[in-house]
């Protein structure tokens, strides 16, 4: 046994991560929620290897439209980061404007996704089958984009509440930063879906 414990960064009160519990908790939530998508994507990768007739998704989906969706989410995320920075320096009116813009970006993304779904359904895609190839293709499309869309929807709700709290001066910089972490996480997941589902 060590004769004397070292009172270093791992000492009590100061976390080994040098972050308050809110940030630590949020990051672990992100890891857990991310693994939910990890499991969906792993299952999709598995189904795709089994399938003999997996459709070429760049033929099924419009790539320019996909680029536009990505641009919207990406811009929304950058606006969120700017909003967090504004909140940190106490520029609350600026923060409110960024947050509002972020929220609108989220709403726009949801609308675009709904339109994409509408197109796919009109073309005959169902949970049980689709006109392009393996039945799992449509199922995984709706499952994965649907779950991501649900997260965007939840993010939009959280952002709306956060914007209202900024407007009524009840928000804290840390609170806005945690909202930001969630919103960036939603974009992070989209990066995986964009590459692994739409492009590969």
């Amino acid at each position: 046994m060590m004769p004397v414990a070292r009172p270093a960064a791992w000492d009590g009160g100061v976390c080994p991560f040098a972050a308050g519990w809110q940030r630590v908790l949020m990051w672990w939530f992100i890891v857990g929620d991310g693994l939910l998508f990890g499991a969906f994507l792993a299952a999709y990768g598995y189904a795709r290897l089994i399938a003999t007739t997996w459709p070429d998704s760049s033929v099924v989906f419009s790539l320019p439209y996909l680029a536009a969706m990505t641009l919207v989410l990406n811009t929304s995320s950058a606006m969120m980061a700017s909003g967090v920075a504004a909140a940190r320096r106490g520029a609350w009116p600026t923060a409110r404007r960024w947050l509002l813009a972020t929220t609108l970006g989220g709403v726009l993304f949801l609308g675009m996704q709904a339109d994409e779904w509408r197109h796919a359904i009109a073309a005959g895609a169902r949970l049980s089958g689709n006109p392009w190839g393996d039945a799992s293709f449509g199922a995984y499309f709706f499952l994965i984009t649907g779950f991501h869309g649900t997260h965007v929807l939840l993010g939009v709700l959280i952002l709306t509440i956060a914007t209202a709290r900024v407007a009524t001066r009840r928000a804290t910089p840390l609170g806005i930063e945690l909202v930001g972490l969630y919103w960036h996480f939603v974009e992070l997941v989209w990066v995986f879906i964009f590459t692994l589902f739409y492009l590969l």
Partner: peptide, 19 residues
């Protein structure tokens, strides 16, 4: 995204490895 937007580049290495 993780490094710049989510500030991981400023965070403790432990948090980076958590991710």
């Amino acid at each position: 995204i993780a490094g710049n937007f989510m500030h991981l580049r400023h965070a403790h290495a432990g948090l980076v490895w958590t991710f």
